[in-house]
Amino acid sequence: MNVHALLPMDRRSRTIAVILGCLALFACVFTGAWLYGDRGEVTALTLRKLPPSLQYPFGTDWLGRDMLARTLKGLRISLRVGLTAAGCSAGIALLLGLCAATLGRAVDAVITWLVDIAMATPHLVLLILISFACGGGEKGVIIAVAASHWPSLTRVIRAEVLALRSSEYIQLSRQLGKRPLYIARHHMLPHVLPQFMVGLLLLFPHAILHAAALTFLGFGMSPHTPAIGALLAESMRYLSMGLWWLAVAPGLTLVITVKAFDILGGNVRALLDPKTCRE
């Protein structure tokens, strides 16, 4: 999807519009699930397997449950799990990245080695193993996603801080008599923080997708929780019976939500970079 073609404004207005749009979308998901979500639990056997209509925009399932309500609730669960996991993951990444770049060669070697191992292990296998070891459920999914998503951001932060440390303006700052603490506070932090924020935003979609994937595969949340992954897994059985809306509607909303985060991340990055912030 090309945002530039859709919104022919300049960057700052467009960025602000996009950010507001994304926030509105998330607000809709949360309030919608709060107002409407419980209806997804109600079975109505007279209204089974209805295709999408005005009254039931996402149709109903084989027990007559409203799919819109179930999708909203599922999205809210997925968002909550994704946000928590991505936040934890980014925290780990920040800590490890800073340690690797500042605490000397031995620490750097160990952390780089850890990053390499985590990156070399197939993602899904790692997720399944950790989630399974933690006993599944929401806790298991959060721990698994948090424990497997830090390596790439760790690398970015480590490289960023290392490059900064050898940059001319930081060396010059030392010659101007500035203390390490001043340099860390005034030179390093303003540079690393935006990178971290953007990294965090771009972690969300991954975390949400992987949380859904874990549940879909049956290693995550219990089938009774209407998480998006669980909804999709259930719908697989009914696809061959022609109930396409069971998979399409939740899947599409998941894709839209994830893409919204992705666009949000890219736009925030443009806004925080002095080179592009005035365009």
Partner: peptide
């Protein structure tokens, strides 16, 4: 330095 743009914090 030769390249002043590297000797200043771009932010």
């Amino acid at each position: 330095f030769q390249h002043p743009e590297l000797a200043v914090n771009p932010r």
